[in-house]
Design a protein around this nucleic acid. Sequence first.
DNA 1: GTTGGCGCGTTTTTT
DNA 2: ACGCGCCAAC
Length: 613
Amino acid sequence: MYILDSNLNEEQKRAVYSDSRALLIVAGAGTGKTRVLTTRAARLIKENPDARYLLLTFTKKAAMEMTTRVRDLIREDTKNRLYSGTFHSFCSNIIRRHSERIGLTNDFVIIDESDSLDLMKKVFSRIYSKEKLDSLIFKPKDILSIYSYARNNNQDFIEIIQRKYKYVNFEDIKKIVNLYELSKRERNYLDFDDLLMYGLLSIKALEKSPFDEVLVDEFQDTNQIQAEMLYRFYYLGSRISAVGDDAQSIYSFRGAYYKNMFDFIKRLDAEKIILSSNYRSTQPILDIANSIIQSSYNSIKKELIANVKLKDNVKPKLVIVSDDWEEARYVAREMQKFNEKGLKVAALYRAAYIGRNLESQLNSMGIKYSFYGGQKLTESAHAKDFMSFLRVFVNPKDEIALIRILRMFPGIGEKKAEKIKNAVINGGNLKIALSKEKNLEELNLFFEKLFETTDWHDILELIFNFYKDIMIRLYPENYEEREADLIKFMDMSSNYDNLVDYLEAFTLNPVERVEFDNNNVILSTIHSAKGLEFDVVFLLSVIESVYPHFKAQSTDEIEEERRLFYVAITRAKQRLLFIFPRHSKKNRGYFAKNTISPFLREKDSYLDVSIVG
DNA sequence: GTTGGCGCGTTTTTT
DNA sequence: ACGCGCCAAC
C-alpha cells in the first residue's frame, strides 16, 4: 500500500483502495470528494505504471485542477497515463478519431446553445408563416430544450411533447426536429448533445476499452447518455469509479438524472461507500442542513458529521429586515465587518437579479467584490462576431456565422441576410452573392483577401483589423473594452496548433468574464457556488416564491429546489445567515408582503432569530 | 415588406 | 447585458 496521503480517514481510505470493478462513492458536501478521487487516481497510476486511466468531469476547470493534484501526489507527469477532460471534450476527441466509422467527417464545427437556438429559429420560420409564428404556444427555445432533454435521456420526444402540449400538431413538430437535424448535417455542425450521442456511438464501435479504469466526478449531474457511456466502458473491460452526491443534484433542468446513482449500483452491482465525515462546516450548520435534506423523499441516507471544532460554534442566524433594500444595506455592512476580520464571505442568491441591490450597495460603499457565474466572455456578442469570421473562413457555408456577419452591415436585416445566405448555400459562391449588394462591397473585398491568406495567425490579424471598425459602429459606448477582449483572444491563439482546435476551444472551454477584484467578498448565484466554500455565507431573500421558486410546481421540481437550498447552506464553514425581507419592492413601485421560505418553517430550534430595522 | 430604435423583463445555465 | 416585442421610418 502506498502512503500517498496519510491524513485520510477510514471511509476515505476504503474509497481510495477499493478494487471493485464498479464503485460508487457517495460523497456528502465537504467530505473531501476531490481529495479521494485524486488520491485514488494517483494510487492507481503508482500501482500500475503501464495502465491508462480516464477521468471525466463537467468543467474544464475541475479537470485541470484534478490533473494538477494527481501530478502533485505522484510527483510525476500524468501524460499518456491519465486522460482527464470534460465529457464533451473527450467526446469531441474520440469522434474526430473515429469519425469515418460513425459516418461523419472530422472537420465538424461544434455549435453552442445560442447557435442551436439560432438554427432552430430558422427552422421555425421555414415551416411557419409569420402570422402562424406569433400564434404558436411553443417557442423555438421550448422545442429545443425538450428535444435536448429527450435525446440526453433516451426518451421519446413526441411523447414528452404530448404530455406538455395537448393540442398541437405533432406532425409539424416532427417536421421541425427533422429539419433541425438536416440543417446541422448539411452544415457539418455538431451541437452539444450530438457530441455526447456520437461520443457514445464511437465508444460502442470500440472492441476493447483503452482505459483500465474510468473515474467520474459529479456523477449526480450525468444524464442517461453519459451514464450509458460508462456502462459501455464497463462492458468493454474498464473498472468504473464514480463520485457524486444525490443531495446536491441541481441541474436536472438541463437533463441531469441523479437517479443514475441508484441505477449504477443496480446495473453493475457496484460497491457503495458513503463519505459522511465533514471537514468544512461546524455542527450547528450541518444540523440544519441535515434536517432540511432529511425531508427529501428519496436520497441516499447520510448524516453529515462535523470534524470542525471551533470555540465560536454559533447557530445559523435568521435575520429579519423590513425590505429588500434594507437587506442589501444590512448584508453589505456585515460583509464588510467580516471581511475586515480576514474572513472569506459570500452572498448567495437564487437568481442574478436578487444580487443586484447588494451590488450597487457595495459599489456605493467602495467595497470591492468578485462576481461568480453569469455570461462567459466567449459568449458575448463581440466574441461571437469575431468567431463568425473564422467560421466562414473554415466553412463558407456555415450559415449561422454567415448570417451573423451579414447582419453587421447597415441595411441588412433578417430577410436580406437569409436571401444572401441561400444564394451562397445553393451552389452559388460567396463572392458573386455578395457582389449584388451595395453595402457589402467592403465585405466582399475583405473575404477575397482573407481566402488568399494561408497562415492562420495572419488570418486572425486580418479579421481583427477589419472587425475593429465595425465594432466601433456597433458598440460606440464600450468598444475599447471589447477590443481588449479581442486582443486576449488573439493572444490565446499561441496555445493551439491549428485553427480547428482554436475554434473548438472557444466553444468547449469558454473564457470567464470576471476579473477578481477581491477574492474575499463574493457575490454568486447558488448554482455557480457549487463546489466552493466560504467562512461566512449570507443567503439572500429566503422567501416563499424564491425558495422554492414559484415556477417549480411538480414534486420533482420542488425537491430540486430543496437540494439547491441545501447546497447553499453547505457552502458555509463558520457562519450562516439567512436574510428574510418582510417586503419586496416590485417593479411598479409598490411593496409586496413576503412569507418566509417553507424550507425554514419549523426550524426555529436550529436558528437564532434577530430583527433588524 | 424590412430594418432598426426603444423600452421592458429577467430561475438556475458545468458543455 | 441581452433578447423580445412593438412601432415608426425607409
